[in-house]
Every structure is written in C-alpha cells, then in structure tokens.
Simulated assay, not measured.
Amino acid sequence: MNRSQILSTLRVELRRKGAEYRTEIAIRQWVKKFLKELSITHSRQLMDWQADYFIANLKKDEQYPAAEILQAKSALSFLFEKIIKANGDKDNSYPTEDQFRIPA
C-alpha cells in the first residue's frame, strides 16, 4: 500500500472500531508524522524498529509530554497490528539470522 492507501485504510479501520472523531484525528496525525519523518512511501518499507526509533526521537525532543508519547506509541502499534499485518504485507519484524547469510 502506498502512503495515501495506508492513511485511508487507517481511517476506515478506526471508524469501523468506533473511535471518536478526535481520537481518529490524533492517530492520523501521529501516523502522518511518522511516515513523513522517516520518508516512508510504501508499506513494504515499514519495519518494527522504525516505530521504536521514532518514539525514541520523540522522547529526546523533550517538547512532547509523556501522555503524547504514549498516544504516538499506541497509534503506531495500531498501525502495525491492525493495518499493515492485517492486509497481508510482509512480516515487519527484525531480520532473522538466515536473512543475513552471505554465500561463500
């Protein structure tokens, strides 16, 4: 999925789950910020560690209170669990040992 499809699917899934409009706006803003900051244009580029990296940068920034960081973490968790993995995109976990095998 490209970026606009990710955001559209996110919006539809949030409405299907019955999220309040203000919650939907907040989640979409965090996901947009995440995608823009890491220059992600397609769901195949998403990896779990990127969410951890993004959250760590928010914590370093010190302009965000703990409640907002928790909200961002929850938004990214929802994105990965309900949108990316549910749509059959590749497993976004860390590479395994087999993936780093170098042929002799």
Rank of each mutant, 00 (worst) to 15 (best):
T23S: 13
D89K: 01
L7V: 06
I40T: 02
D98T: 04
L7W: 07
N92R: 08
Y64I: 02
I55R: 08
A51L: 14
K60N: 06
H42L: 01
N92M: 05
V12Y: 04
A75P: 06
K73V: 00
I84Q: 02
P95W: 01
L38F: 08
L14H: 08
L76M: 10
A19V: 12
L76C: 06
A67R: 14
K33W: 11
L38Y: 11
I83P: 01
L46F: 02
E81Q: 13
A51F: 11
R101E: 12
A19Q: 08
Y21C: 02
W49P: 00
A19I: 08
Q71C: 04
A26D: 12
E62G: 00
R11A: 09
K82E: 15
A26E: 09
Q45G: 03
Y21W: 05
R16D: 12
E97V: 14
Y53P: 00
Q50N: 06
N87V: 01
R22Y: 05
D48T: 10
I84D: 02
S93A: 06
F80T: 09
N57S: 12
A56S: 15
A86K: 11
A86T: 09
E81P: 00
P65K: 13
K32L: 07
H42K: 03
D48N: 15
K85C: 00
I55P: 03
P95M: 03
R101F: 11
N2D: 15
Y64Q: 04
K85S: 11
K17I: 10
A51Q: 08
L76V: 04
Y21S: 12
Q50S: 07
